[in-house]
Each structure stands twice: as C-alpha cells, then as structure tokens.
Design a protein around this nucleic acid. Sequence first.
DNA 1: GCAATAGTGTCTGTCAGACAATATAGG
DNA 2: CCTATATTGTCTGACAGACACTATTGC
Lengths: 243, 243
Amino acid sequence: MTEDDFLSRYDPSEFAPLALTVDIVLMGLREGRPTVLLLRRDAHPFQDRWALPGGFVAEREGLDEAAGRVLRDKARIESAHLEQLYTFGAPERDPRMRIVSVAYLALLNERAFGEALLGNPALLPATLEVPWAGEQGGPVSAVARGEALPLAFDHAAILAGAVLRLRGKLDYSPVGFAFLPAEFTLRQLQDVHEAISGRALNKPAFRRRMLDKGWIRPTGTREAGTSFRPAELFRFDPASKGD
Amino acid sequence: MTEDDFLSRYDPSEFAPLALTVDIVLMGLREGRPTVLLLRRDAHPFQDRWALPGGFVAEREGLDEAAGRVLRDKARIESAHLEQLYTFGAPERDPRMRIVSVAYLALLNERAFGEALLGNPALLPATLEVPWAGEQGGPVSAVARGEALPLAFDHAAILAGAVLRLRGKLDYSPVGFAFLPAEFTLRQLQDVHEAISGRALNKPAFRRRMLDKGWIRPTGTREAGTSFRPAELFRFDPASKGD
DNA sequence: GCAATAGTGTCTGTCAGACAATATAGG
DNA sequence: CCTATATTGTCTGACAGACACTATTGC
C-alpha cells in the first residue's frame, strides 16, 4: 500500500476541522444506588441540559492523561480508578463541528465523591435509574430531585455504556473495590455489588465467593462504633490478579 | 462552566494538526488457530514492518462507517461482525504527527477470510500466538512462516486487546457464531470455542451448554460427504438475546 | 438478658467434567 | 461386521441459594 498510503496521508480529511475530547462518567454509590456527577450546560448547544464533565485533549497529551487532568480540574480528584469506555464519533453529534469524544469511566469511593462535590459545587449528583429490562440493559436515565435530567449530546448513551461495562466486569474483576475505602467490611462490599448488579445477593454465598476468589485479606481488626457485633475489616489484595 | 467552556472551544489544541484513523483486526480461524490479516508497510515510518489494515476517517463519516469502508476497500469484504475495540491516542504513537486510532475487531468466517485473501493478495495471514500466561493474557505475537512478524506502531497492543475481548465475550455472548457459516455442526462450534479460549473442552458438556443457552436451533438436516455418521446441522438463533 | 447484626453449618438444586454406552454413516 | 464419529446417559464434584443456627457487641 505504498503510493496509496502515501497519498492518503494527504487526504483532505486530515485538515478538516476536528477536535478530540474526553468525557468522564464520575460514578459513585449513594444510598445503594449508582450515582453520577453532571454539569449543567450554560451555553448552546444543549443549553440547560446536563452533561458529563469533559475537556479537550491537549496537543501533546495522551488520552488517559487528558482524562486524569479533567478529573483534577473539574472535580479536584487526585486519583481514582479510571478506564476507557468507548469512543463516540458520529459526525453530527456536536452541531458546531466534528468533535470525537473518548468516554472514560471514573469510579469514586465515598470520600472522593464528597471531595468532588466540595471541590466543584456546580457538580450535581444524579441517580442512575436502570430499568432492569431484560438482561443486557436498556436505556438509562439520570434522576435528581425526583426528575429525570435532560442530557446533552449523546451522553445518555455513554451512561448506558458505563452501567453495562460495570455490570459485566463486576463478577470476574475486582473493580468493585474502587467504590470502597482501603478497609471495609464484607457487608459494605456486598452493598456495592448489589447496587451495581441491581439485585439482592445471598449473604453466606457472597462471603464464600469473595473469600474463595482470594481478592480480599482480613486485617485482623474490626469496625468500631457499632451498637452490635462489629464486623471484621478486610483489605483488597492486589497480589491476586485480574483487572 | 459558561465562560470556561466558551474559551475552551477556542483552545489552540483544536487547531493543532490531528488526524483520526480506524485500524481493523481482521480475524478468522485457520487450522484451529486465531489468524489475522496484515499488510506490509512499504514506506516510513515502520517500513517493512507489518500493520493492521486501516484508513483515515473521512470528514462526514462515522467511526463504524469508516471501519466498514476500510473493510470493503482493503479486503473486499461486504459484511462481517464489526465492533469497536479501544482507542489509542498516545501523542507519539505515530512519529509524523498526532494520529489517534480507533481500533475495530472484524470477525470473518472461512468464506469471508478466503475472499479477503483473493480480494487483496497483499494481505498476509498471521497466526496469533498467545502464551496462555496467567489468565488475563499476556503479549501476543503474530507468526507467519514460522517467524514472529515485527509489527508497526502499537499494533501489537491492539492484537492483544482483540484476543482479550474475544475471550471475555465468548461465554456470555454469541460472538463465536461470526466465525461460522450459516449452518454448522456442534463440533465446528466447539472448534471455534477451543481456538479462541485456547483450551480443550468437554464434548457432552459443551453440547448441553450451547443447547441450554438457546442460541442455536437444529435445522433438521445433516452434513453430507462424511464417511461416518453425519452430524446434525444447526443455525444461530438471533431471536434469543445478547451480544 | 435483649436487640441487632456478624459469621457459620448444612441441605439442596444446578451444572460442568469425566466417561461409558448407544447410534449411524460408509465401506 | 468394522471404523469413525455423533449423540445420549449417568455419576460425581464444585458451587450458589436458602435458611437456620451460633457468636458477639452495646445497652
């Protein structure tokens, strides 16, 4: 493909206006429900609709790097589990010009979620309502104060993709620990799994499964401040494998 | 994020040279091994190394659309299972300029694989050698005529991603049928699963599993031309669900 | 002791692997 | 009948769900 290739390097499309952005699904768990952080758009297009935090990819910046920067700038979050989700590039997805967006998923534990809210008061937490609908997931809506928020661009599709990705990885990857602090009880871990999968789980079976997988290690300490029997604290053991 | 947002629309990065390409992993099965089709690079950079077929995304073209076009132009394949894999955008991945590549995975059955080879004789089939290494997969090499091919750009990483994606989806999605003709025997389907997962499977268990999943329906006919008991032919039943 | 939750033991149904038995094509 | 492969039957072990039981804390 010599000449062919050579010529295509000078294809006009190369010089057509094109921008690259990253959009980030900032997800945490609130009251047992997956919750995302959204920003209201003040300008056209999609004025007054709600959008994922995002930003343009800089000239000498990698994609993961850009996502990390957006995380810092828009939510004051220094570190979080961050993974690429999918790339959206329909020509008309942004009416202004061709903007291709690489969507990322960031998972926040309770502390990071709270810090993000403090760091940027414009962020609105919205509960993800996922009609369990079949099994492969259906449309997702983001709800705040009892009302479904109108979303900008193709951001509803991005949210749906985020939920599917999480559900798919939950069982065979230790991704669920990203929602928890360093030390946690088995009940907390089970709550995470129930929130993401959207269904109740059996306690003894869950405990067996987690211990058998070898993902967690007991710390030897127990939680404090309960008025009943305190649960044992565990830590994620990255020495296992996966993800 | 009014003013902020407004200003960022005019960020210089928007006008920095940036190109968008799709690269396609054309995968089929040959002699029980995953095999991909590669093109030799005649020009710099990475001259004489092997690369995935790819092309620039045109001005008013969606990403899936661009991938379909590359499939037609470079391999004369009219239709195939095509899914987006991952987007690679390290700033220096192409020494000439910033080129972001959206990788796609195309699955070919035996007929499509043969047609591609006829349609473009420059395509070289290379066997994917996947050292089973642990479980999450390791580095992948593409081997032809007994030798590992030197790959261009970050295409080795793309191949590794393709193998992982396939392995991950095989059990809970009907993706394996993309490698087979419309009618097939259970033995053929099992061969596909063994080739992708890289391990031998139990015949009765495999048969039960496939029938229970409801993905396949018997056609009532049997294969012909065997010198032994002919196997029943099945069809993929898309009425089930998933993918 | 009481309330509340943590953690364990046990039964049972589902399902995959192993392996053997039966079925059927061509010769 | 013989060979080779398809297809089915059955046993067994791994494991998840259900549910009841025991343990431990604050009060």
